[in-house]
Simulated scan of single mutants.
Amino acid sequence: MAIDESVGRTMKAAHMARSEGRRVIIKAGELIEARFARGVSPSLAARKVLALLIEKASGNAWQPGAHTITKKELRGSHESNDRLNDTLDELMAVHFKMPTISGRGRDAVLTAALIAWNIEETDDDGLSTVEWEFSEPARQMLQGSDYYARLNRAALLALQSKYSVTIFEIGCLLIGRHDRTWRGGLDDLREKLGVPHSALRNFADFRRFVLKPAKVEIDQLAHFTFDWEEKRAPGRGRRIAEVELCFTPKRSAAINAAADEVERPKVGRRSRRDGTVEHLRVVESGKALPAPSTFPTGSLSYGDREAAFAGVARAYGGGWDKDLIAEAYRTHMGDKLDTLTGTALLSSWEGFCKSYASRRPKP
């Protein structure tokens, strides 16, 4: 399909990203830099669902008319169907604020809804669909947008803090620039992240519940690291006047490690991050076994090391032959299997067994 020449670079990039597969989500820089209307702080689920809607609409998001997505696709946000209705209702109430020019030619602030309407099919199955249309102000912004962020889809969906998602998006927008720092007053940052006006007024709490959780998640999962600097107001004691969010590109090895972590099961992620997984044990037939260093090359039926993997296959493999799953796992992992060891290897194997079972009927 030809790309409409009336649109800016963002919609063209979204069109290309869709043709290349579902690895990245193209999000307009204007939307990333926009702020939530006061009193509105979208939940983690709402932020992820919005990203999936943007991905689904891709280069056609600026056009009037309905877009359609299945509930099965929206479950990529880790939300079940019974909670999806609440999440969509929440998104309908979200308003964004961004700079604009008034009809009189003066600087002004635009406040508008993101989504004009949605229609959700009531059948509770993965093939049911949701139809929606972006609001006219949102579509106009998307049509003219000329700068954007490439969001790693898997990394974004793996984040578990709603503030991590916004900071991650800011980092993706800035990481390719010479100046990779966001600067603003503390109230500006609170508004930017959607922190409720009455919450976390003490900066120590803001640091503890917003910045620190975002840092540990982003440092583990993103292709860059995140930190911040606190600027104090002269003559006002310890009061924080300004905060700088700083983003630093990772080296190749660290980028590969982050990509590997994104592919692993969520279970054990905190322990892997904290370095506390070395003594994890797998129990098979009542016997405690050490976390293995490599994946077996033969049958899983022999030896203590093989028994550890056999127990996982029996527990999570859906009744399929353990050696059949193992061969599929070796093919799937390829060369990566040579560098995966210990508890990370067991977690990867467990996740693959669950996926293998979910994609096939019971034997």
Rank of each mutant, 00 (worst) to 15 (best):
N118I: 01
L127Y: 13
A253M: 02
T122I: 08
K212C: 07
V243P: 06
I170A: 08
A116K: 08
I119W: 09
P213T: 07
H197N: 15
L174P: 03
R183V: 14
I119G: 04
E169W: 00
E242S: 02
A149M: 12
L186F: 02
K250Y: 05
A112C: 12
W228G: 00
D227S: 15
K215G: 07
E169Q: 06
F247W: 02
L142P: 04
L151F: 05
P137A: 01
A233R: 14
V130G: 05
L157D: 04
P213V: 07
I119H: 13
P234N: 10
R139K: 09
L156M: 12
L173E: 08
A214V: 05
V195T: 03
W182P: 05
D146P: 00
R236T: 03
A199R: 14
K192G: 15
F134C: 14
L221S: 02
S252C: 11
F226W: 10
H197T: 14
C172E: 04
L174Q: 10
D187H: 15
A222C: 02
D146R: 10
T111V: 11
S252T: 09
A241G: 10
A204N: 00
C172T: 00
I240H: 09
L193P: 15
E121Y: 06
A158V: 09
W182F: 11
R190P: 00
S161W: 08
D188W: 11
R153E: 11
A214E: 10
A155H: 10
V165H: 02
K162L: 10
S145R: 12
I170F: 00
G184T: 04
A204G: 02
A113I: 07
L245N: 01
L159H: 12
L110M: 08
Q143C: 07
D219W: 11
L110R: 08
R153C: 09
L200A: 09
F247M: 10
A113D: 13
A116W: 04
I255V: 11
Y147H: 03
G144M: 02
P249G: 15
N202F: 03
I167E: 03
G237L: 06
S164G: 15
W228Q: 02
L110Y: 10
P213E: 02
T225Y: 13
G185T: 05
N118K: 07
G194K: 07
F134S: 14
L127Q: 12
G237K: 11
L157W: 14
R251I: 14
S145Y: 04
Y163W: 07
A199M: 12
F209V: 01
G126E: 15
R201Y: 11
S128N: 00
A199F: 09
C172R: 08
L211T: 10
A158Q: 11
